[in-house]
């Protein structure tokens, strides 16, 4: 099979599809966190990439300093980094309520510089290895390809967490508070709900999702200070393509664009880095509010 002059082998196709799904898993988790935060705070969290990186580092520290393995990290790292996020919201973002949201955005941008600079200081540009947990080592033979167990796990974990988050937001009482507060926070407060606390927790939760993605990424990529900065621009493009209006939209767009990017690597590798941005440009021309966004 040839296309654009490239010979396409089926194993390469499956391989890139798999990589696409993995990348999509990260895009989905990160853009979901951004969407959740945006819904409540009306800001884009530019520190999201930094929190993702810190999630991976938390896993690394838990292992090297306390001996707590991957499975503990999967729970503890989002809790720790999420708590840091909640403190950031409480200490800084709350003070900017009432000002142009661009100031909040700039604040998260500055925090990202601080966090990333701190880690770069101590770890340089190099990466720390983090090994795949032994329960997830090895690969399955699917007949047409070998699927490393850990990669399969990343996809499953991401899908489960994304759908779980979606279900909580769309189908539970807590989610109803969130949706209502997104629409009219004052009225929800007038019903006796502590919306300011909810905003803090929501920010913490969005950050925790980023940290969770960071832990998932730790055994795949090395744990590096720059890992967040590398992925975040693509995630922003994903968010712009999906539109900020819908939780489910951000999840679906994340996975689909990961796969599209993977397929581009097979069919037209030169464009694989930029395909998401090109799609963003097209979407902006046709539907400025994004595929799932409300104009």
């Amino acid at each position: 099979m040839t296309l654009f002059g490239h010979a396409i082998s089926m194993p390469a196709l499956y391989g890139q599809l798999l990589i696409g799904l993995i990348n999509g898993s990260f895009y989905a988790l990160l853009s979901l966190g951004l969407a959740v935060i945006f819904g409540m705070l009306q800001i884009v969290n530019f520190a999201h990439g930094a929190f993702y990186m810190m999630g991976a580092f938390a896993a690394y520290f838990l292992l090297t300093l306390t001996g707590l393995d991957y499975w503990f990290a999967l729970i503890l790292s989002p809790l720790i980094i999420g708590a840091i996020g909640a403190v950031v919201e409480r200490l800084f973002l709350k003070r900017l309520a009432g000002f142009d949201p661009l100031y909040s955005l700039l604040l998260t941008f500055g925090l990202a510089l601080v966090f990333q600079g701190l880690f770069q200081n101590y770890f340089g540009a190099s990466g720390m290895p983090y090994s795949i947990p032994k329960q997830l080592a090895g690969a399955w033979n699917l007949g047409f390809m070998f699927l490393p167990v850990y990669r399969g796990w990343v996809i499953v974990a991401s899908v489960v967490v994304c759908l779980g988050t979606w279900l909580v937001i769309e189908k539970t009482k807590l989610g109803a508070y969130l949706r209502a507060a997104t629409e009219n926070p004052t009225m929800v407060r007038a019903f006796g709900v502590n919306v300011p606390r909810m905003v803090t927790l929501t920010y913490g939760f969005g950050v925790a999702l980023a940290a969770f993605a960071g832990v998932l990424a730790a055994p795949i990529a090395q744990v590096r200070p720059g890992m967040g900065a590398d992925i975040i621009a693509v995630v922003f493009a994903v968010v712009v393509i999906g539109g900020m209006g819908s939780i489910l939209g951000s999840i679906v767009t994340g996975f689909v664009l990961g796969v599209v990017e993977g397929l581009t690597k097979v069919f037209y590798p030169e464009a694989s880095n930029t395909v998401v941005f090109v799609i963003m440009a097209i979407v902006l021309l046709v539907r400025p509010a994004g595929l799932f966004g409300r104009a």
Partner: peptide, 10 residues
């Protein structure tokens, strides 16, 4: 420098 820039930013 990055850290200081970030702090000045904030």
């Amino acid at each position: 420098v990055t850290v200081i820039q970030g702090v000045v930013f904030v």
